[in-house]
């Protein structure tokens, strides 16, 4: 077992997150001696003959929590696909966990965008979580008790406990609410103790209290267990306190850095080429005004969803 995983295993989970751990100030990519978890240099991507974004430079160190922001259709999910090796980068260099994308997928936990299970799907939450552990193995497990089986079961219980899904993990997953399903899916992504989590809009379909609870959970996993997190988000506010860096994608380019550097009127105006204003409310929330489709505003995609 690698040292990171060991360290992660040693961590006991306390329920509280440190509100603003960026005060320590490792804002530039840390551990410059070691390979960064993620490194993009001049990366660009094309789908259907159209360049979505280009010239993206990004370095993410271990244990960092990064948000990918930008308007609908700008290519956020596509960026996740590039990191998984499902789509080649059109230009530039992309390194994930020290290798080419797709080579280290077994060390990555992935949560795709907007995935809800059919209400009639009769498979329990625990089974879906378990699939993350050994669902890709050929053959079927023998129905006899064994040490490996016991270890697998213990690990499943452990992650389910970690995300706080014990109460409904044994119900058919189709009967769980959107938020409950999302927690189970985060457990599924975590079960192999990944070094990198790629989460595509995990807060989608959650109500506000659940958004902050899940955001806190992901922040805790990232900072206490040393897992690097890349999270596509629609709204930066629920995760703002946990973030180490943000990447704003725009047609053509991108801006990456700490939230203080990037979410400013100047940077976003330059990036989008139209006047963008960033306002800070008295409770510390950010409101981005004038962006092609402001991510801080709740659009009707969220209304009427399950809680």
């Amino acid at each position: 077992m690698n040292p990171i995983a060991k360290a992660r295993e040693a961590v006991t989970h306390s329920a509280h997150t440190v509100p603003n751990r960026r005060a320590g100030g490792h804002d530039t990519a840390p551990n410059s001696g070691r390979d960064p978890v993620l490194a993009l240099r001049g990366a660009a991507v094309r789908v259907g003959g159209r360049t979505l974004w280009s010239g993206v430079d990004l370095r993410i160190g271990s244990g960092e929590f990064t948000a990918v922001l930008g308007p609908n259709g700008v290519g956020k999910s596509t960026m996740i696909k590039v990191l998984l090796g499902a789509l080649p980068a059109a230009a530039g260099e992309v390194r994930v966990l020290g290798t080419r994308p797709g080579q280290a997928n077994d060390r990555i936990g992935y949560l795709p965008q907007r995935r809800s299970f059919d209400a009639s799907l009769r498979i329990r939450g625990v089974d879906v979580v378990r699939m993350g552990l050994d669902g890709d193995r050929w053959g079927v497990p023998l129905p006899f008790p064994s040490a490996r089986r016991q270890a697998a079961r213990a690990r499943v219980d452990e992650v389910i406990e970690l995300v706080g899904a014990s109460a409904y993990a044994h119900r058919p997953i189709g009967q769980c609410s959107g938020g409950e399903q999302q927690r189970l899916l985060i457990a599924q992504a975590l079960i192999r103790r990944p070094e990198l989590l790629l989460l595509d809009e995990p807060l989608d379909s959650l109500d506000l209290p659940n958004q902050s609870a899940v955001a806190a959970l992901i922040g805790r996993i990232s900072h206490q267990e040393g897992v690097s997190v890349v999270m596509v988000a629609h709204d930066v506010n629920p995760i703002l306190h946990h973030l180490d860096r943000v990447v704003y994608l725009a047609e053509g380019g991108a801006a990456a850095g700490t939230p203080e550097e990037v979410i400013t009127s100047g940077t976003l105006t330059r990036l989008y080429g139209t006047p963008v204003e960033v306002l800070r409310t008295s409770d510390g929330r950010l409101v981005v005004v004038g962006q092609p489709e402001a991510p801080a505003v709740h659009t009707d995609r969220h209304s009427g969803g399950p809680s």
């Binding site: 998984l84 499902a86 997928n105 077994d106 990555i108 992935y110 949560l111 795709p112 995935r115 299970f117 799907l121 498979i123 089974d127 879906v128 699939m131 993350g132 050994d134 669902g135 890709d136 193995r137 050929w138 053959g139 079927v140 497990p141 599924q188 992504a189």
Partner: peptide
């Protein structure tokens, strides 16, 4: 018997299964 487990994974959760190399 040989394909059962990956087939179950691919049936329930195709995107994640594909990400895992199924």
């Amino acid at each position: 018997a040989l394909l059962g487990r990956p087939l179950l994974f691919a049936s329930v959760d195709p995107k994640v299964a594909a990400g895992r190399g199924v």
